[in-house]
Computed example of a mutant assay.
Amino acid sequence: MLSRVVASVPADLRFEALVGAGSMVTGGFDDESDLDLVLLVRPDAFATAMADRRAFAGGLGDLLACFSGEHVGEPRLLICLYGPPLLHVDFKFVAADDLSGFVERPLLLWARDPETMQCRLDALQIKPALRDGQWFEDRTWVWMHYSATKIRRGEYFEALAALDFFREAVLGPMLRRQAGERPRGLRRIETSSGAVDRLLPTVATCDRASLVAAWHASIALYLDLRAVDPPPHPIAHMPGALLDFLDGPA
């Protein structure tokens, strides 16, 4: 599919370049990887390229389904499933005069003017989304209060989802950061030394006792991780007030 995209893009004069992102840049790209592709569009043709993007995606092969990325706050993204064989491809359409949104330096796959485009990519000021200890502290107690309310109310599936989210948004990134790795949630967390053993107690089944145990384990792990990089402004009354909330009378 990648070679097909690279071969097809030059015929559409609205496109100035095609770059790769995701695991093509960060490493770990293999046969199971999605394709993360960014199409750099002539600014004067951006509106038409956005309007025609489903037709563009459909012309590349057996497109089974596609939808835009508003659910992740990125309407320029078109998420596609091709096959069989099944393949997930993300196309992001970006005006070529606005390269400010990259959080990693993309890989140039094709350009009408390769030398100029590569110089522009090399000159990008990459600003990865860095999350410090205060970022995690400000969110942890709100998110864990939410999961506690669901446990108290008996909404066990919602509580499971909330604990899963906390593991991905807080515990996984903190473990990766302290291991000196890129904080990419739970992606390939199994390869991070010791992470699996520390995370397993935070995984619950759909009953109250298991959820309560996983909830406490999640807070305990967060506190252990927080101690390595304490936030400058810890949230008052935490974790005591939250422990009393879940463990006290309903």
Rank of each mutant, 00 (worst) to 15 (best):
L13Y: 04
L13H: 10
R14Y: 13
R14H: 14
R14E: 10
R14C: 09
F15V: 15
E16T: 05
A17P: 00
A17T: 02
A17G: 05
A17N: 03
V19I: 14
G20K: 00
G20E: 07
A21P: 02
G22V: 03
G22R: 02
V25Y: 01
T26N: 13
T26W: 15
G28H: 03
F29T: 08
D30V: 06
D30N: 10
D30Y: 03
D31F: 12
E32H: 15
E32S: 08
S33V: 04
D34H: 03
L35E: 10
L35H: 06
L35I: 10
D36R: 02
L37C: 05
L37M: 02
L37N: 08
V38P: 02
L39W: 12
P43S: 09
A45K: 09
F46M: 13
F46K: 08
F46C: 11
A47C: 12
A51W: 15
R53M: 04
R53A: 02
A57H: 04
G59M: 12
G59R: 12
G59W: 03
L60D: 15
G61W: 07
A65E: 08
C66R: 05
F67C: 01
F67D: 01
F67Y: 09
G69L: 12
E70K: 12
E70F: 09
H71N: 13
V72G: 01
P75F: 04
L77H: 00
L78G: 02
C80V: 02
L81Y: 01
Y82P: 00
Y82F: 02
Y82L: 01
G83N: 02
P84L: 04
P84Q: 02
P85G: 01
L87D: 01
L87A: 10
L87M: 01
H88V: 08
V89T: 03
D90F: 00
F93K: 00
V94P: 06
A96K: 05
D97Y: 03
D97A: 00
D97R: 01
D98K: 03
D98I: 05
S100R: 11
G101N: 13
G101S: 03
G101I: 00
F102N: 07
V103G: 05
V103W: 10
P106Q: 15
L108V: 11
L108C: 14
L109I: 11
W110M: 00
A111F: 08
A111T: 09
D113I: 01
D113H: 15
P114M: 05
E115Q: 15
E115Y: 05
E115I: 14
T116N: 11
T116Q: 10
M117V: 11
Q118C: 06
L121D: 07
D122K: 06
A123W: 07
L124K: 05
L124M: 08
Q125C: 10
K127L: 11
K127H: 14
K127C: 08
A129Q: 13
A129S: 13
L130P: 07
R131P: 09
D132E: 11
G133T: 12
F136V: 09
F136K: 03
E137S: 13
D138R: 11
R139D: 09
T140A: 15
W141G: 14
W141C: 07
V142G: 14
W143Q: 12
H145S: 13
Y146R: 06
S147P: 08
S147T: 14
A148P: 06
A148R: 06
T149Y: 04
T149P: 03
R152C: 07
R152K: 15
R152H: 06
R152I: 15
R153E: 10
